[in-house]
Every structure is written in C-alpha cells, then in structure tokens.
Amino acid sequence: MAVKKYPHFHYDNCVSCGICVQACPVGAIDLTRRGKSGKYKNNFPEIVNDRCIGCSMCATSCPMDCINMTADYEG
C-alpha cells in the first residue's frame, strides 16, 4: 500500500505568493504561519486542518520549489 505523503514546507525561499494555498483543492493550506523572511513580516503557508489528501497539487504549483512531499506528517 502506498505511503501517504504530506507537504513539507521549507520557507527559506518562500515569497508568500499564495499559489499553493489556492492550488489546494480541500482548503488544507493557508497563509497563517507568522514569521520573518529576512527583515519582512510575512505570513507563510502551513497545513491548518486535517483535510490534506496528499494530492501534491501544492508542491507541483510552487514556483519557488519550497514544498516537497514526504511521508512524515508534521501535524
């Protein structure tokens, strides 16, 4: 049985463009992770509920290559 994968976000190159948020068909991602990108106050994407179906649309859509699908669910 295939192991279900979940998106893992690494924020070093994330530009908060929201493309992954809008790509998610089930509304599992939103820009709510508060952080600082360099000196800028930005919200970054994160999984915000348990609806993720592991479809990887987010990872495919990210122009900055910030998302990879892994089997470790970060919760």
Partner: peptide, 12 residues
Amino acid sequence: EVKYHCYSCPLG
C-alpha cells in the same frame, strides 16, 4: 502587522 500579497505576487 503583516505584509499582504495578492495571489501569485512575490512583492507583497
């Protein structure tokens, strides 16, 4: 509080 980016925009 926080920057706002329109969809698909890296500028914010």
